[in-house]
């Protein structure tokens, strides 16, 4: 097992709020790592450190080292636009652009200067197939993405992220706005995607974390309480707080 992401002593402050405290974690390649924890524990903020989306918020201070493939992504020599191409993200609420289905998936290719029309349509088709959406939309690629159902929209957002061929995909509670059937389809898709991608998923749905992830981290009040193989976390948690959270004493 290779560690794709290695994080040491990560600290993050928004203005005066100390949101993430001394986090040490190593995220394995081509497996699913779930980040769980009560609301406001810093799960999403942690996720957004990995593609530097926190940079967009003014007053963010970050320290520690955050290595992807042994390179510090916060060093000056990193091209942030290239980083975000390598580390894709899918958000909590499906957020397709108000464009056609095709244009949504082609967007990332176009901003990264791929101009050849044949290449673009090939890559769009592949991304849609990989996101298990192709068969449902192949006859209406030019119709608006906003006409799709919520679950389809979320898979479209995944296709959009896949199209630029990332190595890591971050999921920020991707199923929380979906109905149970769409949610199940999404979980199946995650299982398939882990063959080729390193996946980090934030969730506060414990069953979901248990079902799909290989490793699980438990975060509370900005601290990493426990990080272990998922079956160990759920069957024999080492920390009392993890156990209390899993048994529903708080949450």
């Amino acid at each position: 097992m290779v560690n794709k992401i290695i994080i040491k002593e990560l600290n993050l402050c928004f203005a005066k709020n100390h949101v993430l405290k001394n986090i040490d974690i190593s995220i394995p390649e081509k497996l699913i790592t779930a980040i769980m924890g009560p609301s406001g524990c810093g799960k999403s903020t942690f996720l957004r450190c990995l593609n530097r989306m926190n940079d967009l918020i003014e007053g963010t201070k970050i320290s520690g080292s955050l290595l992807i493939d042994e390179k510090d992504i916060y060093s000056d020599s990193i091209d942030i636009f290239d980083l975000r191409k390598r580390v894709g993200m899918v958000f909590q609420k499906p957020n397709p652009f108000p464009k056609s289905i095709f244009e949504n998936v082609a967007y990332g290719l176009k901003i990264h200067e791929i101009k050849d029309k044949g290449t673009i349509s090939e890559k769009v088709e592949k991304a849609l197939r990989d996101a298990n959406l192709w068969d449902e939309v192949k006859d209406r690629l030019s119709s608006s993405a906003l006409d799709l159902s919520g679950g389809q929209q979320q898979r479209l957002c995944i296709a959009r992220a896949l199209a630029v061929e990332p190595e890591i995909i971050l999921f920020d509670e991707p199923a929380s706005a979906l109905d149970p059937i769409s949610s199940a389809r999404l979980e199946e898709l995650l299982e398939e995607l882990k063959k080729n991608y390193t996946i980090v998923i934030v969730t506060h749905n414990l069953q979901q974390a248990a079902r799909i992830s290989d490793w699980t981290a438990f975060l509370m009040l900005g601290e990493l309480i426990e990080f272990n193989k998922t079956e160990k976390i759920f069957t024999a948690p080492q920390d009392k707080r993890t156990e209390n959270y899993l048994t529903g004493k708080f949450g």
Partner: peptide
């Protein structure tokens, strides 16, 4: 223009100007 559109664009590696030109202005 919803900020979620801009976020989606930035997360794909778009620059600010690309995001304005291709997402914000058309919307």
């Amino acid at each position: 223009v919803p900020s979620s559109f801009k976020e989606a664009s930035f997360a794909l590696g778009a620059t600010k100007w690309q995001t304005i030109r291709k997402v914000v202005l058309p919307t």
